[in-house]
Amino acid sequence: MTAQNGRRRFKHEVIDATPGGEQLTLCLQCGTCGGSCPSGADMDHTPRRIFAMIDADMKDEVLSSNTPWFCVSCYYCSVRCPQEIPITDLMYTLKQMAIREGRYEQRRASDFSETFIGYVESYGRAFEMGLATRYHLFHNPMKMVGMATGMGLSLLQKGRMSLTPERINNIEQLQAILNKAKQLSAGGA
């Protein structure tokens, strides 16, 4: 294997795991993405810099940064990118890789996604009340107090939060589909 291939190994992993990811090789480092990002100011690195780091094979630094987790999925960068790089989808890929490799150290964002999906996999529907209680009990018990007295209470009073989850009828079918997808996903993206 040439040094060049070795150096770009991480970049190709990212590309292979993303539909349309090959556009990443066309990045001009123009910075339109970072300039368009509503949460760019709070990211460790802007998307532009993340792409330069991917190019430099800085896998550890990329996967341990908060950048993909602070992506709000607004797609401004994607529609403005002159090279049509699917930036939002690349951020999803980076999140997925960070979870698999256990790199991201502030677990708040990934735990939120995992708790949310735990309910979807069990019931076929999202369950906001369960999500809020389970996630906040673990990460931010003080926020639970606020939830119970403030916003959460208002939502309950307005009948906008269920106390029990809804379940779809054919949950077995959904679970069979998801299990198969996970199997396929483990054997290559």
């Binding site: 964002a109 939120f112 979807v120 998801l178 997808a181 996970k182």
Partner: peptide, 14 residues
């Protein structure tokens, strides 16, 4: 936006 963060293929299948 949660499932795509965890695992994209099951997310699309869902």
């Amino acid at each position: 936006s949660e499932y795509f963060s965890l695992n994209q293929l099951p997310a699309y299948a869902l």
